[in-house]
């Protein structure tokens, strides 16, 4: 059932890892978090990365997002080889071309929801497209929360604001690191539906790390990692199918 890691040619590739390795420590203490991984992430697709803890899924996400550097190989965002980029260039790529949703602590406590949403654009000194902003806010149903500080928002609302921030600058792709890890099932489902809708209706590209099979089932494609290598992938996954596959790898 398994297909090669490199997916069949989509219309375009949003992010790509080529023979990428990440090694921590040296000699006997050497830990190989990523081991010669090559993988493409197609535009306008929702991809989930799964694997047991220590499989390297978070490391892969961090390296793809320009938060960390690979030790060997290359990482591309679009056509740009970010493994060769300077710290400053990486920062600007993160700001202008990538959106982020983290598991927790997504928002700056001193800024209100609206300011948090437009934060990356404000850092770039740009004004958001108001119509686009309005439509995102409406879709995420946070219009009445815009002037509130994060401490006045529920966990689900905070994550929705984070998703709005990730969407507002129309990034090339959005990385989500366990975005529903701290939420109850209802709030989780809401967030995942929004992310699904962002891909389907707004044409966004999302790469999400999760350990939750039901979260992964919202994706178009699931990539399975174990011991720093890609061991399998699945298209159009169902929660049960993902769970079965995970069991095979001892996750």
């Amino acid at each position: 059932m398994s297909t090669p890691a490199a997916s069949p040619r989509p219309e375009s590739v949003a992010a790509r890892a080529v023979n990428a390795s990440k090694v921590y420590g040296e000699g006997e203490a050497e830990v190989r978090a990523l081991d010669h991984i090559s993988v493409d992430f197609a535009s306008h697709q929702f991809t989930a990365i799964m694997g047991p803890s220590g499989s390297g899924k978070s490391t892969l996400l961090h390296c793809l997002a320009g938060l960390d550097r690979v030790t060997e190989g290359q990482v591309f965002i679009g056509d740009v080889d970010i493994s060769a980029s300077s710290e400053k260039q990486l920062t600007l790529i993160r700001r202008d071309r990538i959106g982020f949703v983290f598991q927790s602590f997504n928002l700056i406590p001193t800024l209100n929801a609206a300011e948090n949403i437009t934060l990356p654009m404000a850092l770039a000194g740009r004004k958001p497209d108001q119509a686009w902003m309005d439509s995102i806010v409406a879709t995420l149903r946070i219009g009445d929360r815009l002037t509130h500080r994060p401490s006045e928002l529920s966990g689900g609302q905070q994550q929705r604001v984070a998703v709005a921030r990730a969407l507002v600058s129309r990034p090339d792709l959005i990385f989500a690191d366990e975005p529903t890890g701290n939420l109850d099932s209802r709030a989780s489902a809401e967030i995942l539906n929004f992310m699904r809708a962002a891909v389907d209706d707004l044409g966004q590209t999302i790469v999400m790390v999760t350990h939750d099979p039901s979260a992964a089932s919202y994706a178009d494609r699931v990539v399975f990692l174990a011991d720093g290598t890609i061991v399998d992938e699945m298209l159009e996954p169902s929660a049960d199918g993902v769970l079965d596959r995970l069991k095979q790898f001892g996750g």
Partner: peptide
Amino acid sequence: LLRAVGMTRRQ
């Protein structure tokens, strides 16, 4: 977080 979403060191 600020650095992750694109704040430069100078900023």
